[in-house]
Design a protein around this nucleic acid. Structure first.
Lengths: 144, 144
DNA sequence: TTAGATGCAAAGGGTTTGCAACGTC
DNA sequence: GACGTTGCAAACCCTTTGCATCTAA
């Protein structure tokens, strides 16, 4: 439980507003820098620092999600509806996976271990349809 | 598919050997630095760079897993048996969750989206038993 | 007027990498 | 002897932060 917040309330700002628009308007699970570049189209003077600060704030308020795939940078998701993800190991794209959450898994485990479970995430890994051809292509090349 | 490997084979090294022992011998999902400190007890001259290089190698060979929790550093798991994780938001500990994998989820989604799914991961979030008392304590303090 | 938000740039901090020396096969 | 591995330290790069200034309320 680490959180030494200092502000007592939140003011609205054009920067944060545009960032949310951008995030809600894409399904691409973008990085901070992608968001930065995108917002810059309407607010050319915004700084990366501001982007990061607002991403943190929006995340803390539950308006967006942060995803970690170990590629060095975080990805953000404007879709906070319950859903899972599919991570293509070919192109790196992250797809949303609709479908009912398995809340029963939470209950089972909470019961068995005596933990309180607030939520869970599921990540699928594999190769998306678009990448399948390309993969066989690459495999051929590697054989040379 | 990005991977410009250059070595044609792998030699064994005492460093990598000890690292694997350490990883297989703990259930704590340690960070690179923790592993470094641990290995240093028997190999005082090992360097962090070597630790990272071997972690990468072991991961690529499927002997360990890398986990990302957005706390700035990766965690590693010597247990490659299929299992899920529970992440305590109180103390930050990561617990293994035994139990049968939901392979049927993979099938459903592979079918629906036409993707090839190799595996999936599930992360549960909440508060572990040990932390529950402490949490109520903190909440009390915050009320002051 | 008050205190939160921003821009800018510097600082942080985990991870990667170049290179000469070393070790394994 | 060939080539993978290591130690060391510098380089990287994403993210955070200090501070003067701006701005919402």
């Amino acid at each position: 439980m680490k959180n030494n917040k200092k502000t007592l309330f939140v003011r609205k700002s054009r920067q944060r507003e545009v960032m949310l628009e951008v995030l809600k308007g894409t399904k691409s699970h973008p990085t901070a820098d992608w968001i930065y570049q995108e917002v810059r189209k309407s607010l050319p003077k915004i700084s990366l620092g501001t982007v990061y600060r607002n991403l943190k704030l929006l995340k803390e308020r539950g308006e967006i999600l942060e995803l970690h795939y170990g590629d060095g940078q975080s990805r953000f998701d404007g879709n906070t509806e319950n859903h899972y993800h599919f991570n293509c190991q070919g192109c790196g794209k992250v797809y949303d996976v609709e479908g009912p959450l398995k809340k029963d898994m939470e209950r089972d485990i909470a019961e068995k271990l005596g933990f309180v479970i607030t939520h869970h995430r599921v990540e699928f890994y594999g190769v998306c349809r678009e990448c399948r051809e390309e993969v066989s292509l690459h495999l051929k090349e590697e054989r040379l």
